[in-house]
Simulated scan of single mutants.
Amino acid sequence: MLRVSVLVLFLEAALALVLGAVFGETREPEPGEEAVSALTLVVLPVFLAFALLAAATVSAAVVAPSVVLGEAAGRRIGGPPFAWQVLLTGVGSVLILPLVGWRWWLVAWACLGVAAFVARYARRGWFVRVLVWGTVAVLAAGGLGVIGAATR
């Protein structure tokens, strides 16, 4: 379960990085600004290492307990376990609310909710499926962004 939720959070970070790069390429550069600098290419592997560490930490601290407690609450109290898991990920992500504000808290809640939803099915061997289809989604978003930027 932990591997799948870390993978989902890491793929979400990769998708955000690709969309940020595509958005950065589609806007007009400011005077003296380069499109992609060499420093960006050097910092990218370091960023990915920190993103993986952050995904593992958040997954272990918020997503995995939300999945386990949501299933237990669904059995004891009643209701669908996914509803409890979404509620618990929202409660777990409320810690960042004072730091980032409402809008980014909702984004974090959505990302953690998706990770909890996919992690529920981790026992069914979803790691390879998530890896393949998540990579396809990231590459498709980047490819469509490049096509869109080339046709402007």
Results as ranks from 00 to 15, higher is better:
residue 2 L to R: 09
residue 2 L to A: 11
residue 3 R to A: 14
residue 3 R to L: 15
residue 3 R to K: 13
residue 3 R to C: 14
residue 8 V to I: 10
residue 9 L to I: 06
residue 9 L to A: 09
residue 10 F to C: 08
residue 12 E to M: 10
residue 13 A to G: 15
residue 13 A to F: 11
residue 13 A to Q: 15
residue 15 L to K: 03
residue 16 A to E: 07
residue 17 L to T: 13
residue 18 V to I: 14
residue 23 F to A: 15
residue 23 F to M: 11
residue 27 R to V: 12
residue 30 E to L: 11
residue 30 E to I: 00
residue 32 G to M: 08
residue 34 E to A: 09
residue 34 E to D: 06
residue 38 A to C: 02
residue 39 L to C: 01
residue 42 V to Q: 09
residue 46 V to A: 11
residue 46 V to S: 08
residue 48 L to V: 12
residue 49 A to E: 09
residue 49 A to G: 13
residue 49 A to L: 14
residue 50 F to Y: 12
residue 50 F to T: 15
residue 51 A to W: 13
residue 51 A to S: 14
residue 54 A to S: 12
residue 54 A to I: 06
residue 56 A to W: 12
residue 56 A to C: 09
residue 57 T to F: 11
residue 57 T to M: 12
residue 58 V to T: 10
residue 59 S to F: 05
residue 60 A to P: 01
residue 61 A to R: 14
residue 63 V to K: 02
residue 63 V to E: 01
residue 66 S to T: 04
residue 67 V to K: 00
residue 68 V to Q: 07
residue 69 L to F: 09
residue 71 E to C: 06
residue 72 A to Y: 02
residue 72 A to W: 09
residue 74 G to C: 06
residue 74 G to A: 07
residue 74 G to V: 05
residue 75 R to E: 12
residue 80 P to I: 00
residue 81 P to N: 04
residue 81 P to C: 06
residue 87 L to A: 13
residue 87 L to I: 08
residue 89 T to I: 07
residue 93 S to T: 15
residue 95 L to P: 01
residue 95 L to S: 12
residue 98 P to D: 05
residue 98 P to G: 03
residue 100 V to N: 07
residue 101 G to E: 04
residue 102 W to A: 15
residue 102 W to L: 12
residue 103 R to H: 11
residue 103 R to Q: 15
residue 105 W to L: 11
residue 108 A to R: 03
residue 108 A to N: 08
residue 108 A to H: 04
residue 112 L to Y: 05
residue 114 V to F: 02
residue 114 V to D: 00
residue 116 A to S: 09
residue 116 A to E: 00
residue 117 F to Y: 15
residue 117 F to N: 02
residue 118 V to G: 01
residue 118 V to T: 05
residue 120 R to N: 06
residue 125 G to D: 10
residue 128 V to E: 14
residue 129 R to Q: 13
residue 129 R to T: 14
residue 131 L to E: 06
residue 132 V to E: 09
residue 132 V to H: 07
residue 134 G to N: 08
residue 137 A to F: 04
residue 138 V to Q: 03
residue 138 V to F: 02
residue 140 A to D: 06
residue 141 A to Y: 02
residue 146 V to K: 04
residue 146 V to Y: 10
residue 149 A to N: 15
